[in-house]
């Protein structure tokens, strides 16, 4: 499954500045693995031993994966995953 991933400002140094990338995966976990292969270090910024880091939200479409099946949430071809971290600043 090819999925579009929107990258927040804070993580763009890892994606060489790209605000949107594509990656492959049948599930969110597989997608994060593929993202990390393409952009080393991204997994650690999104996940910890417990799962999705507590100040990070991963949306599939409009739904937080915590309210779906977490990292096992299935992805379909053409889905968009949005990474929304807690931010401070203004």
């Amino acid at each position: 499954m090819t999925v579009t991933v929107r990258i927040p400002t804070q993580l763009r140094p890892l994606t060489r500045g790209a605000s949107e990338v594509t990656a492959e995966g049948d599930t969110v976990a597989a997608l994060v693995d593929d993202l990390d292969r393409r952009y080393a270090g991204l997994r650690d910024r999104l996940l910890d031993a417990r799962g999705v880091r507590r100040f990070i939200n991963l949306f599939v479409g409009d739904e937080d994966v915590r309210h779906l099946d977490g990292l096992a949430t299935a992805l379909r071809d053409g889905d968009t995953v949005v990474i929304v971290p807690a931010v401070a600043g203004g």
Partner: peptide, 26 residues
């Protein structure tokens, strides 16, 4: 509910990085 808790002080705190902000956005 949305952000749960502060990032741990383990070097993962991307959200604490000051990345600058564009004035009109604020």
């Amino acid at each position: 509910c949305v952000f749960e808790d502060l990032p741990l002080d383990d070097g993962s705190a991307a959200s604490c990085v000051t990345a600058g902000v564009y004035g009109p956005v604020t």
